[in-house]
Design a protein around this nucleic acid. Structure first.
Lengths: 234, 234
DNA sequence: CCAAAAGTGTTGTTTGTACACCCATGT
DNA sequence: ACATGGGTGTACAAACAACACTTTTGG
């Protein structure tokens, strides 16, 4: 037996929802689509999965082509497959969302794709079902970040607690009491205080912290006790 | 433009991880694969996505073909796409997990597929990457059920609190204190006490409860402790 | 010396956990 | 009358939320 007979085959694409945080707002890295249909419309960065390529490899390749980055946090979001989602021909899209430190990719915008960081509050219309993808990614980010310490992926290696708080406030569009916030974050034991301070955003300066990678990996599934015990209903 | 050129097209399948609960154990509905390769090996129920069919429609069709049921709780789990996951030719699998009331499909096992309910503790080897799919589904079920009241989908319309507790204990493989469990469950306000009792499993009999559908829907996405959502009913 | 952001402590409230007894009924 | 599972109450511990003042330093 060499093939399954009588079945239709489809194109499979990967699209990347790429988040960044500039210290004030959550942003998405979008491109201007380079080919028809919908050429020059805003779009997620994407590409077709090659014959011999896994989804993860395709997603990493596509992200790397745009940003030059490797080892970025990525996670499969959802498979979109409405028959008519791409008007040209049936194309399935496996979406991945990525969290990157915006400082690692800020200026060297790849001219080939006319990429830009665009605030989530001011999203333009996107092609096809990409707006839906973004919306789902944002929901998943909120959902997941409430339980797992993934937002650190959006920050530089060294960051301050006020920066971290601004990030959480941007993600959830709320404000937190700084005393409670810092106590809660420090109580996880995931942060290692540095000797130096960030002196840019205040006169007094705020101490830098680094993630404790070991505890990060160990605690990934039990961060802020947002899921307490498995028997926790409600 | 009628097609994208120079790209490879792939088969797209849907595989269903179907959970049921018999009052004691969590079970999966598995079939014996009816065609080569791996004919007669244990497998998830699956099928190819048709040219004109969405993933959800395909999943519902496949589940219905096996069980005859409609309106079942289903949720996309993950897209599996390793290039060699199916040795015949490249096939992408979009997996769905389903939660069904086992009593609605207990005896009328569809002979065509040689389906059986098999305890998760005694899983046989499955074809291809289906074991990995099951493992991921079980993790997701635990994860999600800790936050959302989805396990009710595994119970009949009327159920008792001891039954519900047995279900949670089976899902998480732990035991709970019945006093704390019942207080916690009742405090959600999701349960409506019925006038009649289940008299099968004890002499005294246990009151039946029904889900309050309205609150269920309202609360489904209101998750916990982080952003104290004003709309979050307690 | 003062504006602006960092940092820290206490208290009351809520939620969670551990634990023991009485109840209703079929046999 | 007793064995079996159903149902409830209480007390202690942990987590959370609300809230105000002092510190540092660049201008």
């Amino acid at each position: 037996m060499t093939r399954y007979s009588g079945q239709s085959r489809m194109l499979v694409a990967v699209d990347c929802i790429i988040f960044g945080f500039d210290g004030e707002e959550l942003k998405l890295l979008l491109i201007k689509r380079g080919f028809e249909p919908q050429k020059n419309k805003w779009s997620l960065m994407g590409g077709f999965v090659q014959a011999d390529e896994s989804f993860e490899a395709a997603a990493a390749r596509i992200l790397n082509k745009l940003t030059g980055l490797e080892g970025v946090y990525m996670e499969q979001l959802f498979a979109f497959g409405e028959p008519a989602r791409d008007p040209v021909e049936r194309t399935v899209s496996i979406t991945y969302f990525a969290l990157i430190d915006i400082n690692q990719y800020k200026l060297q915008i790849n001219d080939e794709y006319h990429a830009e960081w665009i605030s989530l509050d001011k999203l333009p219309d996107l092609i096809f079902d990409h707006t839906e993808m973004v919306k789902m990614a944002q929901e998943k980010l909120r959902y997941k970040a409430a339980i797992h310490p993934i937002l650190f992926e959006l920050l530089p290696l060294k960051f301050t607690i006020p920066q971290l708080q601004l990030l959480y406030e941007a993600v959830y569009d709320v404000t937190f009491d700084k005393r409670n916030f810092s106590r809660k974050v420090l109580s996880t034991g995931l942060l290692i205080k540095q000797k130096d301070k960030d002196r840019l955003s205040s006169k007094r300066g705020a101490f830098y912290f680094k993630l404790d990678k070991r505890k990060y990996n160990a605690k990934f599934n039990a961060f802020l006790n947002f899921v307490t015990d498995p028997g926790n209903l409600r």
